[in-house]
Amino acid sequence: MEKQGSLVCVGLGMMLGAHIAPRSRSHIEQADVVFAGVSDPLVELWLQDMHHDVRSLQPLYGEGKSRQVTYHEMVDAMLEPVRAGNRVCGVFYGHPGVFAQAPHASIAQARSEGFQAHMEPGISAEDCLYADLGIDPGTFGCQHYEASQFMFYERRNNPSAYLVLWQVGIAGDRSLARFSTGPAYRQLLVDLLAEDYPLDHEVIAYEAATLPIATPRIGRMPLSDLVTAELHLHTTLVIPPARPMQRDQVMLDRIRALDMAFAAST
């Protein structure tokens, strides 16, 4: 039997006033307690105008403090009023389930304790990226990795597809306690990328606009310039394809054989 408290995690989208879905807004307005995990202070003020009890998750971050600890504390913070029987709404910028650990973890935890919990999608930075850069991920394919994860693990990158690296401003941070890494770390990332891309290959440093009085950042540069580029925690690196797609003739022949067999049988 489900208990009385509940949790919903919703996304505000990226831009103040532009992306919030009616359903997410209703969840915010109908909640007993609202938690805010947003990226822009004016967006947080906007959210505070939607509900009388908005509790910012910002104080849980700290320089030198592992973000893994912060994310666990976010889960604990959101679960506490749920256990007390409240309708809790966790509000996150963008999509609450894209490159966001605490919303997934808090929903899983709430469900495991017998509470009703679910997620409402939002417009993510990825969605804005496609619109602002004019990229269709279906054209050549699109690979997404968290930048540090891309460095820590052996991934099979396909340079005939787009490569999008998130949180590139903290690429190579193993401590989870820093909010930027420097040129030496980025040089390692460039070295890794140089295995698949020429150093003069154009890459894009992208930042979605969070306010309607701002514009997105679309910083084009050669790959080699990434080492000294201005990169923030919210900067995303977009690497367009460097090679044409290669036909898989073996697979095409097998499909053709199937097609012929199908045609012969009809």
Binding site: D40, P41, E44, L45, Y71, A100, A108, H234
Partner: peptide, 21 residues
């Protein structure tokens, strides 16, 4: 308007000792 002076936007660890869900 009295907003937060500094905001952190990272919501995802680059590595995990255990999957979040």
């Amino acid at each position: 308007l009295g907003g937060q002076p500094k905001m952190y936007c990272a919501q995802f660890p680059g590595r995990e000792d255990q999957p979040a869900k």
